[in-house]
């Protein structure tokens, strides 16, 4: 049994790198990522698990990082948008978002990409209905989702574009 007070030292893996943090027990993962690790690609849209902008993978499962305590992540593996690909070497899924016009203001994009990535990890050949269902927890106000769905289908089909 682990028991600590006020701040707790916690170590976990983020995008393949081990990080050591000292956080308050009520610090959310999204705050730890954004404030302590300066990984601001993960967005906070609502703070209550309703918009999906803060989606990350925790031990391979997509979660809202606003609903995870940083202290819970001890020993865990966290994957954020910054770990998926980088400029000049985007992940094919990220590239599909670019090539299919799935990005407008872009605020929902990192969470959307992470949720789609989690889907494709579990189900590499999803139907359109699968994609819609996998992304139902990710709100977008700009695109109307059509091109986001197209992008995920394109990535699943191995091509950059979905026509």
């Amino acid at each position: 049994m682990r028991q600590v007070s006020d701040t707790i030292d916690v170590a976990f893996t983020v995008n393949g790198e081990t990080v050591h943090l000292s956080v308050s027990p009520d610090t959310s993962l999204v705050d730890a990522l954004r404030d302590d690790l300066e990984l601001t690609g993960t967005k906070q849209g609502c703070g209550e698990g309703e918009c999906g902008a803060c989606s990350v993978l925790l031990n391979g499962k997509v979660v809202n990082s606003c609903l995870v305590l940083a202290v819970e992540c001890a020993g865990a593996e966290v994957l954020t948008i910054e770990g998926l690909g980088r400029m000049g070497k985007l992940h094919p899924l990220q590239d599909a978002f670019v090539q299919n016009g799935a990005v407008q203001c872009g605020f929902c994009t990192p969470g959307m990409v992470m949720a789609a990535y989690a889907l494709l990890q579990e189900n590499p050949s999803p139907s359109e209905a699968d994609v819609r269902r996998a992304l139902e927890g990710n709100l977008c106000r700009c695109t109307g989702y059509r091109k986001i769905i197209d992008a995920v289908m394109a990535a699943a089909n191995g091509g950059p574009r979905h026509d």
Binding site: T40, V98, V103, G106
Partner: peptide
């Protein structure tokens, strides 16, 4: 034409 700012946005590097 893909949006010019899209690569940065999908990479999570855009600073809002």
């Amino acid at each position: 034409i893909p949006k010019l700012d899209a690569p940065e946005k999908v990479a999570g590097l855009t600073r809002y």
